[in-house]
């Protein structure tokens, strides 16, 4: 790699990493507030409401299950609810509570849970 390319990569990283970390933290906060009741405080799908639910919430730590969904599908499921992707009505639409930016941050955090957190 030549010097210019290295410098450019460094600058990009320096500028984008704090923003990514902030986005991840925002996603984690939103996940705690809005998702853990069903998806569990660790994201494993074992939330406090589960005994009353006819369909098991998705385990967001399951890399195999999560890899089968694109970011666009996750975004749609959160924004428009489970029915929008032919899944359970128990997953409600959150578009009345969360902005698109909020939902993108949630998707980012779900990807972290499944595939980057080592869990």
């Amino acid at each position: 790699m030549n010097y210019s390319a290295t410098l450019l990569a460094s600058l990009l990283l320096a500028g984008s990493l704090p923003a990514l970390a902030e986005d991840l933290e925002h996603g984690e906060n939103l996940y705690t507030i809005y998702c853990t009741q069903c998806h569990g405080v660790t994201g494993n799908g074992d939330g406090v409401n589960v005994p009353a639910m006819s369909v098991q919430p998705r385990n967001h730590r399951d890399q195999g299950e999560m890899s089968a969904r694109t970011d666009a599908e996750l975004f749609k499921a959160v924004k428009e609810g489970g029915k929008s992707i032919n899944k359970s009505v128990l997953m409600p639409p959150w578009s009345g509570n969360l902005s698109d930016d909020d939902i993108h941050a949630l998707v980012r955090y779900m990807r972290h849970l499944c595939c980057e957190s080592g869990g």
Binding site: Q37, G40, V41, T42, D46, G47, V50
Partner: peptide, 8 residues
Amino acid sequence: VVPSDEGD
């Protein structure tokens, strides 16, 4: 809520 062997 806290995690447990039987779920949260």
